[in-house]
Nucleic acid binder design. Structure first.
Lengths: 341, 341
DNA sequence: AATAAAAATGCAATCGATTGCGCATTTTGC
DNA sequence: GCAAAATGCGCAATCGATTGCATTTTTATT
């Protein structure tokens, strides 16, 4: 008679006329089982094509061996790099990784996070959506003491491990660099200010202006969600000013690129007439022409570190949280190198 | 007294002095429970912050509500697009998605697939690793009748749903296009031939040559794994031929780019001296200079379709498999547009 | 050989949700 | 007014693996 369902430890036990407990212990290399019995059991398990049912095991152990990762959009180089790094570390440590994308929508994020909770993930790694403004769905994790790690876009009011880049220093360096290149009126295309990342980049920008005794001009800062289209309209708006900028620090590479293309089509030369700097070091920034100066964010590393942090939280009871600030690196390329042209 | 663990249906039942069965049925909107009782139960469940334990439910139902996705590398635009599309559809249909990357290694792929099996995924969507040459780990899925869908890199000998692009037509069109542009000696940088995708691209290349009565020259075809570095060394090798090519059909955009940069550094003009075409329409191909002609592969769509197929397999018993061939689109850009320069 | 000590294995409950079957109560029909 | 049908709910088993405690078997000691 053929059993059409998967063999279980009970099937193995029946086969050998022993108890399921023994089989379980043998397969888990419990020292209480003799070597001889273990070998016999493993042989039969192999022969029957036995594969443990992780669901059952997880239920019993109250542990899913799974780490949840939530990103705004999988299909973005920075985020997929983070995922890639996290997956790498997690897998090696014996964890599975479930991934969802919020599409930068608060509702979907809440939905996802609750679903992951129901699935009893052992920990959650998340970079919050642009749109998210309340954080009850995440505070629950802290309240229930379920490991939680923020990366890149963290929530200040929730105390837990965080891994971010030094956005302030990044913003500062970009601006200082533009000043050093002789640009005088430096505009900033900023992202939504409820996200610390964009907030800090702007703060860095402001600080650099202040340090160099440059009067801050409010009309030179535009805040939006940094899509390609919005990059264009923002630049359009900037160029219509009585006194347009001669450099633009764009909040990301996407807008830097769209801005650049827009300006080029208008016959404006980059970097001679206008200098451009982006943020994130997307792969294309290096290969476009002119290549785009930008700030490198080590996504893969960040993912690795995030996974390490969450695993530490999962596997140790201690809860002393750290905020790791990865250094930013300014990559100077053609789009802002006026001096050398 | 504070319970530090999660509330269960038993806790709710105790609270209301009813049975757990009733609670379970009420929460699942079973018609056998009266409306009044249902409401009472739902109110208490809410008040206690009850969240169903998916693990327990899944164990009982022998269903994980999870779809596994295995890709060579998450951190690659085409694959992350596929994931993004699949995640989108799956999530809307109430499925979770677990993702792993094989890093194009056979061993890791086998490991991952077995782990997913142990986790009892309801179905598996996979694009096999370059290195993978045996397929027992996947045949098991078919044997046990667990839904399986291949995308992009499919295994011919396993009968199941597949969704691929028309690589043959793609290879053909690229080659024909180069011929139409007046290129005479067209080289091909091909990927490992055990993958149908690369095999078919080459077949398309050969067929185009044949149709145009161009003698096939073996020295013009180089097979490797299409990394950036290998692109360089392949081109180097080609340029050292007594009679070097005047056009190169690269198996992917990565090698197209690295080849282009190498040639440019040598003072060779593109597309005037040598025409270049890539494959996959990576984001950078559009924005580099010169922009790279390539073949568009609709990754996001492919992911959506793959998810639809797997869900169909999961939710219906029928097993009539289809192979969906998505059309390829040739995108002509600067790197191969000799006529218009 | 008898007994203590150590080693190997089994019993049965548990994790939390689901469900077939059955019992009790209420409603319906004539 | 009473049998029949319908309604509402509970009991207990189940999914497969794990584990504290109990029991059996083996080994060591005198």
């Amino acid at each position: 008679m053929i059993k059409n369902s998967e063999p279980t430890i009970h099937d193995i036990a029946r086969e050998l006329n022993i108890s399921a407990s023994t089989v379980s212990r043998a397969l888990n290399d419990n020292p209480r089982i003799s070597l001889k019995t273990k070998e016999k059991i493993k042989a039969v398990a192999d022969a029957m094509g036995y594969r443990p049912n992780t669901l059952a095991s997880n239920l019993r152990n109250k542990k899913s061996n799974t780490i949840g990762i939530v990103v705004p959009l999988i299909n973005r180089h920075f985020f997929s790099s983070v995922i890639s790094g996290a997956e790498d570390v997690a897998f090696k440590a014996g964890y599975n990784v479930v991934i969802s994308q919020s599409n930068d929508l608060a509702d979907k994020e809440i939905n996802i996070v609750q679903s992951m909770f129901s699935n009893r993930v052992d920990g959650l790694i998340i970079s919050i959506a642009m749109q998210t403004k309340t954080f009850d769905h995440l505070k629950i994790f802290r309240k229930k003491n379920i490991p939680l790690v923020f990366f890149d876009r963290a929530v200040p009011e929730i105390e837990t491990d965080k891994i971010v880049v030094d956005d302030f220093a990044g913003g500062f360096r970009v601006t200082q660099h533009l000043i050093d290149q002789g640009y005088k009126r430096i505009a900033h295309l900023a992202g939504t200010q409820n996200l610390m990342t964009y907030f800090d980049r702007k703060k860095g920008y402001l600080e650099a202006l202040r340090k160099n005794n440059i009067q801050f001009d409010e009309s030179l800062v535009i805040i939006n969600t940094l899509t390609s289209d919005e990059g264009v309209s923002a630049v359009q708006q900037l160029m219509e000013l009585k006194s347009p900028p001669d450099a633009i620090f764009c909040g990301n590479d996407t807008t830097a690129l769209s801005a650049m293309i827009f300006l080029r089509d208008k016959g404006i030369r980059i970097p001679q007439d206008i200098g451009i700097v982006g943020f994130s070091n997307e792969p294309f920034s290096k290969v476009v022409s002119p290549s785009i100066s930008t700030i490198a964010q080590p996504g893969f590393q960040m993912g690795q570190k995030a996974a390490e942090l969450i695993i530490r939280q999962i596997e140790t009871k201690e809860r002393t949280f750290q905020t790791i600030v990865l250094p930013t690196e300014l990559i100077v390329r053609e789009s802002s190198s006026r001096r050398s042209f």
